[in-house]
Design a protein around this nucleic acid. Structure first.
Length: 429
RNA sequence: GUGAUUGUAGCUCAGUUGGUUAGAGCGCCAGGUUGUGGCCCUGGAGGUCGGGGGUUCGAGUCCCCUCAUUCACCCCA
């Protein structure tokens, strides 16, 4: 083992797995363009206050999971982004996007950083793809975002998903509900676990999604957030549900679903996969109408979601969705008989490549047998032989490595054959 | 941050109550075929047994410390 290894919670992706990433990423890009979302890229780090403001100072992310550093002792504190929404919102406000057009639909595939203890489906550097719809958060806007997300899962062939959805009401609703919850739980204070007791003051809503079975009964008897949401909020929520019904998207209304980030309001949702372990949330999101103002901007309705790429990949692997993902080898492998012919081999290889034919050639001066083994390992479709006589006559041996048939042809004819095969292969997908 | 788990070859793993030069399969390299892959046969390279300390005549095996891994809690994607 080498002296150095990847930092805790980070990992390397080698070509085999890289093909899986590419497959998923291209599905995301394709779906984004179908739904009219454009890609946005923001810096990997931001001023620390942005996250403290945006995500909320009492959240776990800000409280204990951020990679924060200060490059200049006299300068400002910086933080590796632990999520994307705050940064995207900052960028939108900085550019004054909404003065250019009232609605913007953005998406991203980006790396994030959280200083948590790694476990299955959780790393310190991880990747999310997500969308932020800025300037609207109507039921139609919510449905647009949820549908986009669910359709990505669908095209990838993922099954065993569960979409849970809830409404958190507006700030006022939640303030009233928070008080009601405190009143409800206070008599039980002694029976609560440590973290729940702490939340009682800070953020009692989070007691609701505690996994502690001992609290289950107590939580079941708690007042419902839904009952504190104003009539218009309820009506909007019902319209969201109707939109989903119309699209044939199944969901469960879960009155206990409370998202961990402070900026969510009204509709919130989460998707879990039965193919995952304890960390089974594969995606989540909701409305965050208040975030813009929190960051010093104007009122701006907004709704978005984020999906964990690593978790998505794990779930897909578990369900065998990569089984058919065979990497295609080069069209042709140029084999030279002896090292004196290597230069000529390179010349032929470059000519083939210029003609649009994927070509490989030995760069290590290995024996012919080794070259052939390599061609086979790479799954090259053809081998092109260059020996002394071929060099002299300009007619090369072309061997089909699947059928083992071999012919002798001039380079022009070879290019024609290989090009035709390339076209057929790309049409097959 | 807490708990548990596991560290032996590139990978997956054997290694008996501590006892010779630490093994297998796969992979890799070479030869069998001095101009031709896959299958087969033969050979080869590759290991500070995670690291440090201790017990012992002797430690991959026992003890302590440490680092790392994995899973779970918390929370999230």
């Amino acid at each position: 083992m080498s002296q150095y290894q990847a930092v805790k919670g980070t990992r390397d992706i080698f070509p085999e797995e890289g093909a899986q990433w590419k497959h998923v990423e291209s599905a995301v890009h394709r779906m984004a363009s179908l739904y009219g979302f454009s890609e946005v890229r923001t810096p990997v780090f931001e001023y620390t206050e942005l996250f403290q403001r945006g995500i909320g100072a009492t959240t776990d992310i800000v409280g204990k999971e951020m990679f924060t550093f200060q490059p200049d002792p006299a300068g400002r504190s910086l933080t590796l982004r632990p999520e994307m929404t705050a940064g995207v919102m900052r960028a939108a406000l900085q550019r004054n996007l909404l003065s250019q057009a009232p609605v913007h639909k953005l998406y991203y595939i980006s790396e994030l950083f959280r200083k948590e203890r790694p476990q299955a489906g959780r790393q310190r550097q991880f990747t999310q793809f997500g969308a932020e719809l800025l300037g609207a958060s109507s039921p139609a806007a919510v449905a647009e975002v949820v549908t986009f997300m669910m359709q990505v899962f669908e095209t990838l062939g993922l099954s065993g998903l569960r979409l849970r959805i809830n409404t958190l009401g507006d700030l006022e609703d939640r303030a009233r509900y928070r008080e009601a919850l405190r009143e409800y739980f206070r008599p039980y204070e002694a029976e609560l676990d440590d973290s729940s007791r702490e939340r009682l003051e800070k953020n009692p809503l989070r007691i609701l999604d505690s996994k502690n079975p001992a609290l289950r009964e107590m939580i079941a008897g708690a007042p419902r957030l839904f009952d504190y949401v104003k009539a218009e909020g309820v009506e909007e929520f019902e319209r969201v549900l109707r939109f989903l019904d119309d699209r044939g998207i199944g969901y469960d209304v879960d009155h206990l679903l409370v998202r961990g980030l402070d900026y969510y309001c009204h509709t919130a949702f989460e998707v879990t996969s039965e193919a995952l372990g304890a960390q089974d949330a594969i995606g989540g999101g909701g409305r965050y109408d208040g975030l813009s103002k929190e960051l010093g901007g104007k009122e701006m309705p907004a709704v978005g979601f984020a999906v964990g790429m690593e978790r998505l990949l794990i779930a897909m692997e578990k369900q065998g969705l990569f089984a058919t993902l065979n990497p295609r080898g080069p069209m042709v492998y140029v084999v030279v008989q002896q090292s004196e012919l290597a230069d000529h081999g390179m010349e032929v290889a470059f000519r083939l490549r210029r003609s649009g034919i994927s070509t490989e050639i030995d760069l290590a001066g290995r024996s012919m047998k080794a070259q052939m083994r390599e061609a086979n390992r790479l799954r090259a479709a053809y081998a092109l032989f260059i020996g002394q006589s071929e060099f002299e006559t300009g007619r090369y041996g072309l061997k089909n490595l699947v059928t083992s048939e071999q012919t002798t042809l001039e380079i022009g004819a070879i290019i024609d054959i290989l090009r035709e095969t390339s076209v057929e292969e790309s049409q097959r997908g």
